[in-house]
């Protein structure tokens, strides 16, 4: 398989993630969309690392995984504290901040 196959897959995953973030209302699903986008970036990094024959891209993927883990910690803490207050994780319900 050529590199372009991986890149097409990465782009498709990234697009699915972006659409998920924009159309879904459950904040956990939205968050999963973001994670999908990050992993699409990882796949692209790895494919390009293979193409160039250096390890920079693989290194980047490691850092992205670590940062994504930290992001999960912070994100779920925020979502859980919001859920305990409102008993919902929808990003549209009880929208207090508006014009």
């Amino acid at each position: 398989m050529t590199v372009s196959a991986y890149l097409i897959l990465a782009s498709v995953l990234f697009t699915i993630g972006t659409v998920t973030v924009m159309v879904r209302r459950n904040s956990i699903i939205v968050f999963m969309g973001v994670e999908l986008m990050l992993n699409a970036a990882n796949l692209a990094f790895l494919a390009f690392a293979r193409m160039w024959g250096n390890v920079d891209g693989q290194l980047a993927a490691f850092f992205v995984m670590v940062v994504a883990a930290a992001e999960v910690v912070v994100g779920l803490a925020i979502i859980v504290s919001l859920f305990r207050t409102r008993r919902t994780v929808s990003v549209d319900d009880e929208n207090l901040l508006r014009h």
Binding site: M37, A41, A44, A60
Partner: peptide
């Protein structure tokens, strides 16, 4: 990040 991956590519 995704932009970074393409620039790297």
């Amino acid at each position: 990040l995704f932009g970074g991956a393409w620039v790297y590519g």
